[in-house]
Design a binder for these strands. Structure first.
Lengths: 239, 239
DNA sequence: GTAGACCATCTGGTATACAAGTTAGTACAC
DNA sequence: GTGTACTAACTTGTATACCAGATGGTCTAC
């Protein structure tokens, strides 16, 4: 659980050290399907590709290992962990647990403190014409919706763990938004959840949220390894 | 969140690489109050002390940083993160969330599948004469009680996060068991929780568990930084 | 006595060198 | 054709070398 944490505070993206930069780029490659589960990585090759020595590469790799993305076999090589659907199921259930707890706390909030919720409303309670359609953008927006709900509940540690879970399921979750019917369903369900929370309807919000995530979990079950390999061969724009 | 994950499978404790060994020893030093929040660490000094080079030391330090125990200031030094009581509060609330979800799932279990629970009963439903008294042992046992509850619920990811939370709060939690009245209270409350779970009394189990952890959280609030420094100077046996 | 500039020293960040184990391919024996 | 032994190339694990920046004490000017 550890965890994804920014150490070098300051201007965003202005990471001073190479290790953090390599870490970001490697994770981006995984999320872009440029490397997929089962792929083999070599410290030297990565260093060569990014123009740095093995030292910062190793730091990044070990961090990714600790976060559960990679495995290392001594003197043999690094491997992207295979997709473990049982683990993804568990992660989705953990997500449900965290988000339900957050929404419960949100619905018990004092009247009037809706700053964070107002921002969500501006994004999700929009007419059909104002909706985004790019799967990549919608995926990012969906993550932000759920992260905001949790953040609004005010527990930084729950937010942190929730963010970690989000990172771990991202690679399959994003594939869900390649279908336009799933995109409109997402807008529809988010709006309903948001209205329930705004009106302090705890039970209804919990019920809707659970169903929303469970549905997403079911869709992910349909993802197979071949889907991922297909995504890799597709040109960048359609991802 | 990262997370404490064993990479080198095989004989327990037979870690082949130095980095993992240094990691374990450093964390042990923190749990033994040999290093306390605010302390400054130097890569060279640690390497000298353990007889290894800076390389494995740095791997261990960065892992501890990612897990939230340390901070590093470029070209300046490593520091044990100060105790953040707001963060500890959040961690305790996260613990409550995870354990309540687990117990709820446990109470919804099918009749008869009590293998894990039976083991807990043997430890906690004992006469007063069979109780442990050593704070260190009781602390470990208490952690194991809660970990077992979560594990019995069957979600590996929730177990992992719960284990991480346990590691993060351990340093203050253990101080709670230096008082004998707190030890007997722990035995008493664990027994009650266990009985409720065994008899499928979901609501009662949840209520008891929440109260149990909340009480522990309140005790921890009384811990001050000076308590930790006192603990450091005390001889090993009494810790 | 005090403020400020300077420099020796220590720090982590990065690159490189070496050690030791794994893997894969090839040549050889049959 | 097949199986095996060997070796050469490649892998990570660890130690070391070097750099730039932060730090803290001292010396100087006032």
């Amino acid at each position: 659980m550890v965890t994804a944490r920014t150490t070098t505070r300051g201007a965003p993206g202005a990471r001073s050290n190479l290790a953090d930069r390599i870490y970001q780029r490697l994770k981006a490659e995984m999320n872009d399907f440029r490397v997929v589960p089962g792929d083999r990585l070599s410290e030297a090759e990565i260093g060569l590709r990014f123009g740095v020595s093995r030292t910062p590469v190793r730091q990044a790799l070990f961090r990714l290992r600790d976060e559960g993305f990679l495995d290392v076999a001594a003197k043999s090589g690094w491997y992207v962990r295979p997709l473990d659907f049982a683990k993804l199921d568990d992660l989705y259930d953990l997500r449900i647990t965290l988000e339900l707890a957050s929404v419960a706390r949100l619905c018990a909030r004092s009247r009037g403190s809706d700053a964070e919720l107002d921002r969500l409303r501006a994004t999700w309670l929009v007419p059909v014409s104002g909706r985004l359609e790019n799967p990549r953008e919608v995926g990012a927006l969906d993550e932000e919706f759920h992260a905001s709900l949790v953040r609004a509940a005010g527990n930084a540690e729950i937010s942190r763990v929730h963010a970690d879970v989000t990172e771990r399921i991202r690679v399959v979750r994003r594939l869900d938004f390649t279908r336009s019917d799933r995109i409109s369903a997402t807008y529809f369900e988010h709006a309903k959840i948001l209205r329930a929370v705004m009106h302090y309807k705890a039970d209804q919000a919990a019920m809707l949220l659970r169903a929303h995530i469970e549905q997403s979990k079911i869709e992910v079950r349909k993802i197979t390894l071949s889907t991922l390999f297909e995504a890799r061969s597709r040109p960048r724009g359609t991802r």
